[in-house]
Design a protein around this nucleic acid. Structure first.
Length: 446
RNA sequence: UCCUCGGUAGCUCAAUUGGCAGAGCGACCGGCUGUUAACCGGUUGGUUGUAAGUUCGAGUCUUACCCGGGGAGCCA
C-alpha cells in the first residue's frame, strides 16, 4: 500500500501514488466518472474515479457510495486548478478503494438547514468544512495562547473550578451541593487565585472553562466558555496594555500562519487580520462617551438613536461597542471606566476616585469586547473598604486580603474570552460555532 | 426577564378572502467523461408544535401552553 498522507500536505505528493484514509463528504456522479470529495481530518480533497480505469464492481460500488462512508483510497495525486477542497487545486485519480463502512442515510444533506437542526446534530455538524475550519482555528488560537505566555515568562497555574463563593460577587453562578460544606459554585474566574499565585511566581495564567448562569440569549454569550487569565506582579495599567496588544497580535498572526486555507474557506479577508499588530489605539472612557455621543447626534433612525444613548457613568452595551469599533481597523483599548460599573478590586485612578484603572479591549468590525482587565488594588485598607462597600463577606476574603499584607505590589491582569476571539478571527457571526459543544441557556444536547 | 418573529414531508419552505396538503432538496431507480450544495427524467414521502374553542368547513380565526430564531439587559 502506498504511504498514507494527510490532505493538508497533498501538494508535496504530486505525481506520486498515495493512500487516503477518510470519509466521503460528497459524491457527484457523471455517468462514466465519479467525483468524491473526501475529508481525512486534515483537509478536503477531490478524488476522481473513471469507469475505464476500474473493475465494473468497484466502479459500481463508488457510484452508490453513501455520504459519510468511511473509505481507504489509493491513487495518484495530480495538480488541477479545477479541483475543490481545503486546500484546493489537487486531486487524486482513484486506482483502488476499500469501503470500511457504507454509511446509513446521513441526516445532514449538503443543503440549507436551520440552526436548531444543526445544533441538534452538532456531533455531525463539526464534520462540515465551515465548522471544521472554525474549530481548527480555535485549536491554533489556544496553542498560540500557551506559546506566547510561556515564551514571555508566564507559568500556567490551574485554579479551582469548584469555588466557595462568588469571586466578583456580581454574576449568577451555577451551584451544587458540596458534602457538608454547604454550596459550591462553578468558577466564573480564576483571578483571585491568580493574584495569590503571582506572589510565588511573578507572572502566571490560568486557562479553563468558566461558568455563568445568566439567562443571556445573544450571539455573544455562552453559559460555559473558555477564558485565559494572565496576572502580572509589578505591572501597572500601561504595562498591561502593552502585554495585551503583543499577546493578541501573536494569536492573530499565528492563526493566519497556520490556518490560512481554513480562514479563506470561511471567506475571511486575511489582509484585514494582517493589520492586527502593535500598537493598538487607546482611548479613555471619557473620550469613548464623547465619540458615541457625536455619532448619536448624527443618527437619523430614532430606534438606533435611542440604543446609542450614552450618559457618562453607564457601561457600554453592544450597540455602543459596535459604534466605537467601527471607527478603527485594529482592536481598541478603552481605559478608565467608572468605578461604579466595575468590580470591587480595581485600583482607583489617581485623583479621580470615580474612575478605575480598568481597560477593556474591543475587537474591530463590531465584534466587541474580547478582554476585560485592570490594575488591582494593592493597599489593604482600601481593599477592605471596597469589600465592605460591596457588602461582601469579609471572612470569605480573608486570604485575599492577606495578599496585601505580605509584600503587596502593584499588579494587573486580564481575561481573554477564547470563543469571542475565535469568532472575531474567523469572521463568523455567532459564538456558538466557536466551540465544539456549546452550552447555552436552552441547550445541553449533545 | 423583556421586545419581536416563527413552528406545515427527514431537511428548507409555499398554500390567495376560512374551501381538494404543495414544491425543491434528501433517499431510491434510470441518464450523462469535469462536477464544485452538478444537472435531467421517474418513484417515495403528512397526527400542519400541544390542548381547547368558533364554524357547514380551520394550516389559516380566538385563548392558553410548549419549543425555537433575532434583539435588549448582563458580561468574556
Amino acid at each position: 500500500m502506498p504511504p498514507v498522507i494527510r490532505i493538508s500536505q497533498i501538494s508535496d505528493y504530486v505525481d506520486q501514488e498515495i493512500t487516503l484514509q477518510g470519509w466521503v463528504y460528497n459524491r457527484t456522479h457523471k455517468g462514466k466518472l465519479v467525483f468524491l470529495l473526501v475529508r481525512d481530518g486534515y483537509g478536503f480533497a477531490q478524488c476522481v474515479a473513471f469507469k475505464n480505469d476500474l473493475t465494473p464492481d468497484l466502479f459500481e460500488t463508488i457510484v452508490h457510495l453513501p455520504q459519510e462512508s468511511s473509505v481507504i483510497i489509493t491513487g495518484k495525486v495530480r495538480s488541477d486548478p479545477r479541483a475543490p477542497g481545503v486546500p484546493g487545486g489537487y486531486e487524486v485519480g482513484i486506482t483502488g478503494l476499500d469501503v470500511v463502512q457504507a454509511a446509513g442515510e446521513y441526516p445532514i444533506a449538503l443543503k440549507e438547514h436551520g440552526v436548531d437542526y444543526m445544533l441538534d446534530n452538532r456531533h455531525l455538524w463539526i464534520r462540515m468544512p465551515s465548522q471544521w475550519a472554525v474549530l481548527r482555528v480555535r485549536a491554533v488560537v489556544i496553542a498560540a495562547i500557551h506559546e506566547w505566555l510561556t515564551d514571555n515568562g508566564f507559568i500556567h497555574m490551574d485554579t479551582p473550578i469548584l469555588t466557595p463563593a462568588a469571586c466578583e460577587g456580581t454574576t449568577t453562578l451555577f451551584g451544587t451541593k458540596y458534602f457538608d460544606e454547604g454550596m459550591a459554585y462553578l468558577a466564573q474566574s480564576g483571578q483571585l487565585y491568580n493574584e495569590a499565585n503571582i506572589f510565588a511566581f511573578s507572572k502566571v495564567y490560568c486557562f479553563g472553562p468558566t461558568f455563568r448562569a445568566e439567562k443571556s440569549k445573544t450571539r455573544r454569550h455562552l453559559t460555559e466558555f473558555w477564558m485565559v487569565e494572565p496576572e502580572v506582579a509589578f505591572c501597572d495599567l500601561d504595562g498591561l496594555m502593552e502585554i495585551e496588544e503583543q499577546f493578541v497580535s501573536h494569536i492573530v498572526q499565528r492563526a493566519i500562519e497556520k490556518c490560512g486555507p481554513e480562514l479563506r474557506s470561511l471567506g475571511r479577508d486575511l489582509s484585514v487580520l494582517e493589520k492586527i499588530k502593535p500598537p493598538f489605539p487607546r482611548i479613555s472612557y471619557d473620550e469613548a462617551v464623547e465619540r458615541i455621543n457625536a455619532v448619536q447626534a448624527q443618527t437619523e433612525d430614532p430606534e438606533q438613536r435611542k440604543l446609542l444613548e450614552m450618559p457618562w457613568g453607564i457601561d457600554f452595551g453592544a450597540p455602543h461597542e459596535t459604534c466605537l469599533t467601527q471607527q478603527f481597523e485594529k482592536p481598541l483599548f478603552v481605559y478608565g471606566y467608572p468605578t461604579a460599573v466595575k468590580a470591587f478590586y480595581m485600583e482607583p485612578w489617581p485623583g479621580r476616585p470615580e474612575v478605575s484603572k480598568s481597560v477593556d479591549l474591543l475587537a474591530p468590525e463590531g465584534y466587541g469586547e474580547i478582554i476585560g482587565g485592570s490594575e488591582r488594588i494593592s493597599d489593604p485598607e482600601l481593599l477592605l473598604q471596597r469589600i465592605h462597600d460591596h457588602s461582601l463577606p469579609e471572612e470569605a476574603y480573608k486570604w485575599y486580603i492577606d495578599l496585601r499584607r505580605y509584600g503587596s505590589v502593584p499588579h494587573s491582569g486580564f481575561g481573554l474570552g477564547v470563543e469571542r476571539t475565535v469568532t472575531w478571527i474567523c469572521g463568523i457571526d455567532h459564538l456558538r460555532e466557536a466551540i465544539a459543544y456549546p452550552r447555552m441557556i436552552n441547550r445541553m444536547y449533545p
